[in-house]
Design a protein around this nucleic acid. Structure first.
Length: 779
DNA sequence: CAGTGAGCGAGCTTCCGCTTGACTT
């Protein structure tokens, strides 16, 4: 079916948005989408003519050619083209690129903008059309060109001075820096401990009724001696209530979700990675369940506010509604969209898989809670005097007066705060004498700064105004893909802590174990991340500065408001920057993170760690040209870092390969290869079991066991072969049975019995279109 | 991801922001 003459063609960025808008505008308007940017800088020679005042060379990337040719067809038939891309710098540039690439006639082209998809907003935008804002477009061109210059000049410096294929950029390099510097803070963190006293007291009130309460000392004690001294003073002291203060307090709801806060809460509450959150949100958006998921705005449309108010009043009662619009405080926010909210808040639940349901539920609760009343408390603080000591005890209580938004939604926090003993306090009166039941002084250790999670890194970047909602998730992926950063769990450790207990007039000491330092899905810098970071911070301080983006953003704003010419801005940045690049190429050494750990007691030679071609290594002795004596090398184990490895750990690496004695007349040798620790026997390799066997300590008996076990599983490996076709084999693998065919492997569909498959069945699986598609995608 | 434990050296790698594709006639 071909659409006849379309009078009005509207072009937006996203197809899902196009669908909704078309419904609103009716059949006189055809709404289509550009799928974001349709042109980009060519990759040849930067795509920038440096000799010609930074003239950009734009091309249509291959994956956009189809869209552009379709748009060209549509435009030809239209009497009026409405460019409705987002109301921000990038959106303005998209509109401009469209007008250029589609060669739109200015007389038949109108630029319109709306930041919410409602009938009113869209119809009024049609009334208030304008021309493309060239200053804003120039600000975007400056942004794009600056990023290209930085990225495409810095990355090759790294290829020459550190390692090929590495990358650097205005956003990613600062993200890595944050993680590297945080890790160093943690490495250098000196744990200290102190004691805090917690007393349990009781008293009888006028009606002879017994009450109990807990109170904490108002001061910490630096060491055990001070804590004991305090407890000794408590013996025979009287404990008197000095004062009781009551004051009201309140807690307000958080604003509705932006991309960044959604990623943070989905990470804390649901354990999603930022990429997971975004792809689930995309599904919800495409299904029409939520508004657009890439936004920095906390604004809600009047339509949304009205329907949320109705829902709150119906579900919770009138006193729970407190309709308000929040103000976006984020640095550099462009606010082209609404906050992330349910499209129809009346819809409490959606159809979809479990993750989609959970994310929708989170968005629903957060949105509705944002329009609910403050929670009201009454806080009580009582100071308790200790007659023989200058320190006091403080009892704190908190009572709900009104739960407000907390009835629906409690925001999580990144800090794992210690539980405080806050609850209801019994009625206290001044000068009341309390009798101590027991007083504990518990040793508490200071906690190092927390490592970043993906989501808390996004939060930090957003605070610095670095990156945009559409790039948070890809940036986090990039720094992991380059090997700069690894997302990992870490086992916690154990330590002892002391509890001193005063009961009656006796002080006893108790030693207990506590777990600490357990990490889940935290970002750790890897060796190469640290080396690259140190190199960039040393030679390109300006770019790596946390305020670099903020500074250039200011200049982009000046371009947007017509106060500055974009080519001048780029020129004054690029001239000194490029000079610095050339200078760095000349003066800097090849950077491999080299560090001397000490002297090898056996040979008397220095022990050096550094990055080798295939990863981090340790060497004994220097590499002297033309010398016959070569240094000895050993690779670092997985998880060992150049930054933290000790001399002892480094020397231990040379205890491999280790001879383990003979088995069946052949020697067994233990060592560590690319794929981890192994035993070699009779020219065959047998992997040691991860986290079970230690190559430095494994016994010959255990090694033989591993060899025999492996032979057994290998025997069971072959399920079926075909005489007529030796290329096809049905095998048992780590993930169950599979078909092996000329170095390629194929899953066996559910429900088929592997041993009864015929050659024809196998060929069918190998030739099936789904499998072929998958192979293409893996390329 | 499907089973390794080597070592020549050509040619390529890379940025940040917008956005979802994918398949015939």
């Amino acid at each position: 079916m071909r659409l006849s003459m379309i009078d009005n063609l509207v072009i937006v960025e996203s197809p899902a948005k196009a669908k909704t808008i078309e419904k609103i505008l009716g059949k006189e308007f055809h709404v289509t989408s550009s799928m974001g940017h349709i042109r980009d800088l060519s990759k040849k020679d930067f795509g920038i003519d440096l000799k010609n005042n930074y003239r950009p060379e734009y091309i249509v990337p291959d994956d956009k050619k189809k869209i552009v040719s379709e748009l060209k067809k549509l435009v030809k038939d239209a009497k009026m083209v409405w460019l409705a891309s987002d109301e921000d710098r990038e959106g303005e540039a998209i509109a401009w690129h469209l007008s250029q690439e589609l060669k739109l006639d200015p007389a038949k082209t109108r630029r319109i903008v709306f930041s919410e998809i409602t009938k009113n907003a869209i119809q009024s935008s049609i009334q208030n059309y304008r021309n493309i804002d060239e200053n804003l477009v120039n600000a975007q061109q400056a942004r794009r060109i600056l990023d290209r210059l930085v990225g495409f000049e810095l990355s090759p410096v790294l290829w020459k001075k550190v390692k090929p294929s590495l990358s650097a950029g205005r956003v990613q390099s600062v993200a890595v820096r944050l993680i590297v510097e945080r890790e160093r803070e943690i490495i250098n963190f000196k744990t200290s401990s102190s004691f805090k006293a917690i007393g349990t007291f009781e008293y009888k009130d006028g009606n002879n009724k017994n009450h109990q309460l807990k109170a904490e000392s108002n001061k910490k004690f630096n060491d055990k001696k001070d804590a004991v001294t305090f407890l000794e003073k408590c013996i025979g002291s009287t404990f008197k209530v000095l004062d009781v203060t009551k004051k009201p307090s309140k807690k307000s709801p958080s604003p509705p979700f932006t991309t960044s806060t959604l990623q943070q809460e989905a990470s804390r509450k649901l354990g999603f990675s930022v990429a997971q959150t975004m792809s689930i949100a995309q599904k919800l958006y495409e299904a029409g369940f939520i508004s657009y998921m890439r936004t920095d705005s906390v604004n809600l449309s009047q339509f949304a506010l009205d329907s949320i108010e109705k829902v709150i009043k119906k579900e919770f009662g009138n006193e729970y509604a407190h309709i308000q619009n929040y103000i976006t405080k984020t640095k550099g926010a462009q606010e082209a969209h609404e906050a992330i909210r349910p499209s129809y808040v009346e819809k409490r639940e959606i159809e979809g898989n479990n993750s989609e349901k959970r994310l929708y539920d989170l968005i629903w609760k957060r949105t509705v809670a944002s329009q609910m009343s403050d929670a009201q408390f009454e806080k009580t603080i009582a100071n308790i005097e200790v007659s023989k000591a200058s320190e006091k005890f403080v009892a704190q209580g908190e009572v709900f007066k009104f739960d407000g938004f907390l009835k629906l939604y409690i925001e999580s926090s990144d800090e794992e705060n210690e539980e405080e003993t806050k609850g209801l306090l019994p009625p206290l009166i001044v000068n009341q004498i309390l009798s101590p039941i027991e007083i504990l002084a518990i040793q508490r250790f200071s906690i190092n700064p927390p490592r970043y999670t993906e989501a808390s890194l996004v939060k930090k970047l957003e605070e610095l105004g670095i990156g945009r909602p559409s790039t948070y998730a890809p940036t986090i992926s990039t720094i992991q893909n380059r090997g700069y950063v690894i997302k990992e769990d870490r086992e916690g450790k154990q330590r002892q802590f002391i509890t001193l207990k005063l009961k009656g007039s006796e002080i006893t000491e108790l030693s207990q174990l506590e777990h600490y330092g357990k990490e889940k899905a935290k970002l750790f810098p890897d060796n190469i991340g640290m080396i690259v970071n140190d190199f960039l911070v040393e030679y390109f301080k300006e770019i790596l500065d946390f305020n670099f983006t903020a500074r250039v953003e200011k200049e982009f704003d000046d371009i947007a408001s017509g106060k500055m010419q974009w080519t001048k801005m780029i020129d004054s940045f690029y001239k000194p920057f490029h000079k610095n690049v050339e200078n760095t190429l000349e003066v800097s050494d090849y950077s491999k993170g080299e560090k001397e750990l000490g002297i090898d007691p056996v040979s008397g030679k220095p022990v050096i760690v550094r990055m080798g071609r295939y990863g981090p290594i340790v060497q004994i002795g220097e590499n002297v040209a033309h010398s016959e004596e070569k240094p000895k090398y050993a690779s670092l184990l997985k998880g060992q870092q150049l930054e933290t490895i000790t001399l002892e750990e480094a020397l231990e690496l040379f205890n491999l390969p280790r001879k383990l004695g003979d088995f069946e007349g052949k020697e067994m040798i233990v060592s560590i290869g690319r794929f981890g620790p192994y035993v070699r026997h009779d020219a065959k390799f047998y992997s040691l079991k991860k986290d079970v066997d230690d190559p430095y300590k494994i016994s010959p008996e255990r090694a033989i066991e591993i060899i025999v076990d492996k032979r057994e599983t290998d025997k069971n490996r072959i399920i079926k072969t075909f005489k007529e076709d030796p290329d096809i084999k049905i095998l048992n693998g780590r993930w169950g049975p599979y078909i092996s065919f000329k170095k390629l492997n194929f899953k066996i569909p559910k429900g088929s019995e592997p041993s009864s498959l015929t050659r024809e069945d196998c060929l069918k699986i190998i030739e099936s279109p789904q499998v072929k598609k998958k192979q293409r995608n893996n390329k």
